[in-house]
Simulated scan of single mutants.
Amino acid sequence: MIDLDLIGIGTGNVDHLTAQAVAAMNAADLILLPRKGSAKSDLIDLRREICARVLTAPVRVVEFDLPVRDDGGVYLDEVHSWHDAIAEAWGSQIAAHLPDGGRLALLVWGDPSLYDSSLRIAQRLRDGGMKLSVKVIPGITSIQALTAAHAIPLNPLAGPVTITTGRMLRAHGWPDGADTVVVMLDGGCAFEVLEPQGVTIWWGAYLGMAHEALEQGPLAQAGPRIAARRADLRARHGWIMDVYLMRKETKDGN
């Protein structure tokens, strides 16, 4: 039997870890750290630093190469194939390092419940016949880190929030009926497809990290600044993680 703990680690800042997360890491028999290629070496370095800072028990920490998603075909088909490959990689590591069962921990950016597929990948292992018990240790999401960095409320007064992706925003535009929209997993600057009049944007990249970057303002003025800064940061670091919140003016000013 494998007891799998999916541990939310926030945006990579060790101070974002909860006491529950630290306890779960120290209770593990094995922690798996995925390597995502040299262009994203910062990500594995951050996970290594977290382990070095919080582990007080003799927990085995093993690194493995994460499969790369194909690009250029049908998006959902590519993602399903990629998840299959990741599940196979997890299974191989479990067979090699926990052949008799035990407690496995995986460190998940943000929170495992929000635009992360660790739970779906774990289900693939179950569907394949592995005896697997899954527990989620919640973490700080990039949305929480963004609103905290800008010191703004997530929602308008008594109002809803729509969370979507850059792909969906680019394909369908501003979500119907929404005044506040949070955009995640934007591979470019999908906000450029919008009519900017009356929209304010709050953007953040590398939230919680030493090189955190923030921009905010009316979309018409802030959008070009964000696009230029994002391109510069991506070129400098080889990767970027960013998220943004946009809000339309309402009649009551909220």
Rank of each mutant, 00 (worst) to 15 (best):
G198A: 05
S113C: 13
A205Q: 06
P67W: 07
P67F: 08
V61L: 09
S81Q: 15
V108K: 01
G139Y: 04
G72Y: 06
D242W: 00
V59A: 03
I94R: 00
G101W: 11
I163P: 11
Q123Y: 02
V134G: 02
G73F: 11
T147E: 02
V136G: 07
D77K: 11
D3T: 15
G37S: 05
C189P: 02
Q197C: 08
H211Q: 10
H211S: 03
G188Q: 13
M184L: 09
M184Q: 04
R229E: 12
V199A: 02
A171C: 08
N155W: 10
R48K: 11
L98H: 09
R124W: 01
D65Y: 12
N13Q: 04
L55E: 05
P67D: 01
R247Y: 09
T18H: 06
D45L: 12
R236H: 15
K248F: 04
W90S: 02
Q144N: 10
M209L: 15
V62W: 05
G139M: 00
M168T: 14
A23G: 04
V182R: 04
M209S: 06
K36W: 10
P218Y: 09
T250F: 13
E49A: 11
L76K: 13
I86R: 07
T165H: 02
I201A: 10
Q197T: 15
A57L: 04
R170C: 07
A19V: 15
A122F: 00
P112I: 02
C189D: 13
E249I: 13
A95G: 06
L98Y: 10
C189T: 14
S133D: 15
L106E: 00
G101L: 02
M184A: 01
L169N: 03
R247E: 05
A122E: 00
R225E: 11
N254C: 10
L214I: 04
G102A: 12
D5L: 08
L66K: 13
V134T: 10
T200A: 10
T56P: 04
E195F: 12
D45C: 12
I240A: 06
G187P: 08
D71V: 14
D186Q: 01
L146C: 09
I201M: 13
N155K: 06
W239F: 15
A52R: 14
L207P: 00
R69T: 04
R60H: 12
E63T: 10
L219C: 03
Y75E: 11
S92Q: 15
H97V: 05
A52L: 12
R48D: 14
A145R: 03
G166C: 01
A228Y: 11
V62R: 08
L66N: 15
D5I: 04
V79F: 11
A24R: 12
A122Y: 01
V62C: 02
Q216D: 13
R167E: 12
S113Q: 11
P153A: 03
G188N: 08
D232M: 12
T180I: 07
D42Q: 09
A87P: 08
A89I: 12
A19N: 12
R60I: 01
D77I: 05
I140C: 04
A228P: 14
A145T: 06
G223P: 02
A24T: 09
P160N: 04
A24W: 10
A220K: 10
G37M: 03
A89Q: 04
R225W: 10
D179P: 13
L55F: 08
P99F: 08
A231S: 11
I9M: 08
M241Q: 07
P156F: 14
R229Y: 09
L114D: 01
